[in-house]
Amino acid sequence: MSNLKKLVIEPLRKTNPVTVLVLGICSCLAVTAQLKPALVMGASVTIVTALSNLIISLLRKGIPSRIRIIVQLVVVATLVIMIDQFLKAFAYEVSKQLSVYVGLIITNCIIMGRLEAFALSHGPGESFLDGLGNGFGYSLILIIVAFFRELLGSGTLLGYQVIPQSFYEAGYQNNGLIILPPMALIVVGIIIWIQRTRNPEMQENNQN
């Protein structure tokens, strides 16, 4: 049991897909200017990772290894189309904000990475939990980055005003710079810095 639990908990910290394995950065940064799209994106990626891990794990004995990439792409693309249609139907505003990044879940390296590294060699139950864990790890970073960017950039969280009006009257101003795309990279860089200072065994030696 503790082994199964580890599959879900580990990716949150020790083997976080974003900050430690450096996978799935592309979509991670573009959707984090506000908290709401980041939450939706995190949920979508978690669902796709978990379900595609489950499906590929069920099929793994039947897939010839030469064409496994195509099979994986088809499974993932089908799941992403379902998510995309669902978002268009029930959360149109957010789906417009996410624009092409929903489609780009297909080429998100976390999903392909987990399929290759885990689902092809483990049973369905374990694979499902592993996908869930990695999805949560990804969402966690997304939420942290989006939290700081929305708080400092617009003074709101999920669209609600958080920084009181009296601060603005006293001369406080929103930091417009942090809304711009490049700042997301710097925020992730700082998260990695803090995480590796606290866990020295993760530091890289000076090979760059």
Binding site: T19, I186, G189, I192, E204, N208
Partner: peptide
């Protein structure tokens, strides 16, 4: 702690 990935991001 910043070597490798961290500094590349920044």
């Amino acid at each position: 702690a910043l070597q490798g990935v961290g500094i590349s991001f920044i």
